[in-house]
Design a protein around this nucleic acid. Sequence first.
DNA 1: GGCTCTATCCTAGGACCCCTAGGTTAGGAG
DNA 2: CTCCTAACCTAGGGGTCCTAGGATAGAGCC
Lengths: 198, 198
Amino acid sequence: MARAGLTVERIVATAAELADEVGFDKLTLSAVARHFGVKDASLYSHVSSLGELRARLALRAGEEMIDGIAAAVAGRAGKDALAAFAGAYREYVLAHPGRYAATQMRIDDSLRPLVTESGALRRTAEITYGMLRAYGLEEPDLTDAVRLLRSTFHGYCALEAAGGFNDPRDVQASWDKAVEALHAALTHWPRQKEKTDG
Amino acid sequence: MARAGLTVERIVATAAELADEVGFDKLTLSAVARHFGVKDASLYSHVSSLGELRARLALRAGEEMIDGIAAAVAGRAGKDALAAFAGAYREYVLAHPGRYAATQMRIDDSLRPLVTESGALRRTAEITYGMLRAYGLEEPDLTDAVRLLRSTFHGYCALEAAGGFNDPRDVQASWDKAVEALHAALTHWPRQKEKTDG
DNA sequence: GGCTCTATCCTAGGACCCCTAGGTTAGGAG
DNA sequence: CTCCTAACCTAGGGGTCCTAGGATAGAGCC
C-alpha cells in the first residue's frame, strides 16, 4: 500500500489546522493520524509524543505570530508602533485561536533545545522592548511595562476567545480603547515619588 | 459494605482540591472517585458528567473568589479600591490555581440555570463597576475600562501561573506597578478628542 | 533488472479515561 | 420487620496515548 509521506513538518502543519478548528486542548494524535489515513502508532516514528507535537506546534505558531507582528511594527515608533503591535497580535489570535493557545503552553525542559533553536522567544523580546524604547522607560520599569502589555494583550484575547465579553459593546472598539489606555499608562508611567510619610 | 456518603457538594469540594493540585485541565472523574474509594460509575448518580462537575466547580470558585474580592474592596474607593481588588484577585489565583482556571471555562448553555442560580457573575459585575465609579467614566468607556481591568488581571495571573515570566524582576513588584499603571490609565482615560484631519 | 536495507507503516495490546445499562444492597420510612 | 429508594456495584463499549515488534515500500547499489 502507498506510503502516506509523513513528515514532522506535515504533521505539525495539520496539527495546527486541527487545533484552530477544534481547539488546542482538544487536539488529538488520533485525529491527526486519521487526517493522514494512518494509524496512531505510525506518528510515533516522527514525533515522540503528543507533548512534543504540541511543543513543536507552539514554537511554530510563535514564529508565525512574531513574524506578523514584526512586519506590522517595522518602521513605526511610539503610539503607532504600539497600535500596530496590538493589531497584529489580536489579528493572529482571531485568525488562529488554536495556534495562539499553543503559544501559551508551558514547554517541558526536556524540549529546551527546540525552543532555543527557534528564535521566537528572543525575537519577541527584542521587538517588544524595542517598541517601548520611545517611552523612555528604564529598568526595572521596562520589564514591568512589558509584562503589563503582554498581560493585557493576552488576557483580552483569551477572554474574547472564551466568549467572556457578553456586553453588546463592540469588542473591536473596546480593544482600540484599551490600546489607547495602555498608551496613556506608558506616557504617564508611575515613577517613584517621594513618600509623604516617615 | 459501608456507603461513602457521596454528595454533590462533597464531590465538588474534592474536585476543587484536586484541581488545585494537578491542574484544572487534568482534573479527572476517576481521580475523584478514587479519592472517595468508589468506582467511577458511582459518581454519575450525583453528577451527570465531567462537564457538569467542572461547571459546578467553576461557579463555586467564582463565588469564593468574588467573596474575597468583595471583602477586600469594602469601604474603599478610588486607587485604594483598585489595589484591594487587584490584591484579592491575584491572591486567590495563587492560592487556588485550579479553581481559578475553572472560572475561565465556557459553561455550556444547557447548564444556564446553574449559573444564574449562582449570583457570582452578577455580583462580580456590580463590584467591578462600583469600584470604577470614582473615576467618573461613563458608558461606553465604563465597559471598556472593565474589560481592560479584567484582561490585565487575568492575563497577568495566567502568564504568571504558566511560568511565563522568566526575568528575575520580582513578580509582586511588577504586579504592583501594573496596578499603578492601570490607575494612571483610568485617571488619564483617553476621551474622544476632535480629530485634526478631515 | 535483481538485491539489500532502512525508514515507514502496520498489528497487537496495555493503561487510563468517560459514560451507559442494569443489578445488588444499605439503611431510612412505615 | 418489611419495603423501597437511593447509593453503589459489575460489565462493558468507545476513545485516547503509547510501546513492542513485524511487514514492506522504495531508494540505492550491483
